[in-house]
């Protein structure tokens, strides 16, 4: 029962058990995602827009197989990852290139960069020569100098660490990329670099890309279709352009407006002369 989609979520409801009461005896289930339906086709670029508390982190964890949903199905690369087990499941997860959120905390500080990037390849039985070649190839792909391979993450700047994470995500020829706030921790001038890197990767490989972010302006560059998440529910989805021009939900409208408000303010402010 294969699906034509890279990722398919059917009516997913998920949450966490939270301890309440004295000595955490009582546990309560807190719902974070409610009846989420999502479909991402192969080769598509989708952005999941959510503010803090929208459930976007939980959504990511569900897709990565880290959180079993209470109800619903999660089909990633054709397999229901909470039904299949063992090899089949591991096989799917290995094909996902995940780029986590914080480049300052997502890298093992005592490992060298080459060992970090090498890790996804270890599960396959490649020869060390092939591995070396592939690592070098992918490092060049993300625009890093080769000498970075012998350094530890602590010696690298934020932008470089982000590139290492992207390199690692790409090294095992993933079928799709899952990015969690790829630019939020970076300086403005570096954000643009990472955005253009991701764009060029998409242009070269046409790989499915799912970006989770709160920044609509950044998402504009990284996605063609957008899914708006609020309080654990999908409130709107569609092509980026049409969402901007004709937002259907109230929330989307106010979100888009708040960005435009800012640019309006800057324009009107600078038009008034103060001194």
């Amino acid at each position: 029962m294969s699906s034509n989609y890279a990722v398919e979520l059917k009516n997913v409801t998920a949450g966490y058990m939270v301890a309440r009461g004295f000595r955490s005896i009582l546990k309560q289930f807190v719902v974070v995602l409610r009846g989420v339906n999502l479909r991402v086709s192969h080769g598509e670029r989708v952005a999941i827009i959510g503010e803090s508390g929208s459930g976007k982190t939980t959504l990511l964890r569900v897709i990565l197989g880290l959180l079993r949903p209470k109800t619903g199905k999660v089909i990633v690369l054709g397999k229901d990852i909470y039904r299949v087990k063992g090899r089949a499941r591991a096989g799917v997860l290995k094909r996902i290139g995940y780029v986590p959120q914080d480049p300052y905390r997502s890298l093992n500080p005592v490992l060298k960069v080459k060992d970090i990037i090498k890790e996804p390849l270890e599960a396959y039985g490649y020869s060390s020569e092939l591995i070396e070649d592939r690592i070098r190839e992918v490092v060049r792909l993300v625009g890093l100098p080769l000498n970075v391979l012998d350094e530890t993450p602590e010696e690298l700047s934020g932008g470089m660490r982000q590139r290492v994470l992207i390199a690692r995500a790409l090294v095992a020829y993933p079928k799709m990329l899952l990015l969690d706030e790829p630019t939020s921790a970076l300086d403005v001038s570096v954000q643009a670099q990472i955005i253009s890197l991701l764009n060029s990767i998409y242009e070269s490989f046409n790989i499915t890309m799912i970006t989770v972010t709160h920044d609509l302006a950044v998402a504009q560059y990284l996605a063609d279709r957008v899914v708006i998440l609020k309080d654990g529910q999908v409130v709107e989805e569609g092509e980026f352009e049409s969402i901007l021009k004709e937002p259907k939900s109230e929330y989307t409208r106010s979100l888009v407006m708040s960005y435009q408000l800012l640019s309006n303010m800057s324009r009107s402010e600078s038009e008034e002369s103060r001194l």
Binding site: S157, G158, G159, M160, D187, V188, S189, V190, Q191, A192, Q193, I195, S196, D215, L216, A217, V218, Q220, Y221, L244, V256, Y259, Q260, S263
Partner: peptide, 24 residues
């Protein structure tokens, strides 16, 4: 360049990123 490479919603200008990183 700073003005240029900040993404603005609604304006899909090509981002011309800076090379390198802000130094420490």
């Amino acid at each position: 360049i700073l003005l240029n490479c900040v993404p603005v919603l609604g304006v899909k200008k090509p981002l011309k990123p800076l090379v390198g990183e802000p130094p420490r």
